[in-house]
Amino acid sequence: MTEAADFTPVNLVTGFLGSGKTTLLQRLLADPALGDTAVLINEFGEVGLDHHLLERIDDTMVLLQSGCLCCTIRGELSQSIKDLHSKRERGLVPNFRRLVIESTGLADPFPILSTVQADPVLKHHFRLGNVITTVDAVNGAVQLARQPECTKQVAVADRLVLTKTDLADSETADALVARLRRLNPSAPLWRAAEDRLDAEALLSHDLFALGGKSVLAQRWFAQEVDAHPHAHDRNRHGDSIRAFSLVFDGPLDWTLFGLWLTMLLHRHGNAVLRVKGILNVEGSPTPVAVHGVQHLVHPPIHMAAWPDGDRRSRLVFIVEGLERRVIERSLAAFLALGAQAPTSAVA
């Protein structure tokens, strides 16, 4: 495993147009804890950012002809981060210890995340941190209904920030929160106007930084993901995105799980907006945390300990248009292969 200190965490701040990304950044960067943060921003909105490290990214996407989506690289973003890294190494910019990328409101967050993790240079110097998604309390419901990017931004979020809650009536805000909870049950949610925004909690507290401390993973399952198993029946607005959790007894074979998830993501990666969970892996005394966004799976983390007395493997999915029972059946069929005749391979 790689030590956390070797890598500069990269946070993505995303959210639909006018949802308050820059305002949020402005608030967060005022926190002394984030004094050594560099910011990459690819659109200059109405709100000016007064920060010592600001770079502009041109919006260019390079999709390699191979068709391998995990290698989708945003060329300009990649180059901008490399330039910043190079300047840091040469002492031309202050020694920043965190990088925050503010995406355009219309951006699908996946290629940005993919760039940081898949780029052969960047992946040795940077790692993905929390994704923070801002949602406008006034217009959020309409945007979610009309803009698929908006839904994706919510689904991939590690942290949700509801903005403009002072402008929306409480019923609208509460309905939106309920909707966000269905799309992404496990991301902690802040109300920007009322809650004190803890920059550390928003940006820094991720599983990697905390050395796999199990309290974070426990939070993934703290919300009852399946509290509304028939939510899609009540929610008849063409909402094909749903979250659910799967639980498996007994230790599982890492290779069989890997074969299954790579196969699933290869064929259905666009529809698996989010998958994360803790696994009881054969041969490992402590759980392994896995965490993926579409075709991209973060390097798994060996957690320090189990979050509670439950030793079962637990996975949370946020999917678009896929059936829970089929996914469950498929994974169970793959894992059952491990119970077949032992391998003849002996080194």
Binding site: C71, A118, K123, G283, S284, H298
Partner: peptide
């Protein structure tokens, strides 16, 4: 090298990262 993309050093995969530590 990633045979698919021709990207040098792109071959590491998440399934290789952990089986049993090390």
């Amino acid at each position: 090298m990633c045979a698919l993309c021709g990207v040098l050093g792109g071959a590491e995969h998440w399934t290789d990262a952990t089986v049993r530590p090390g």
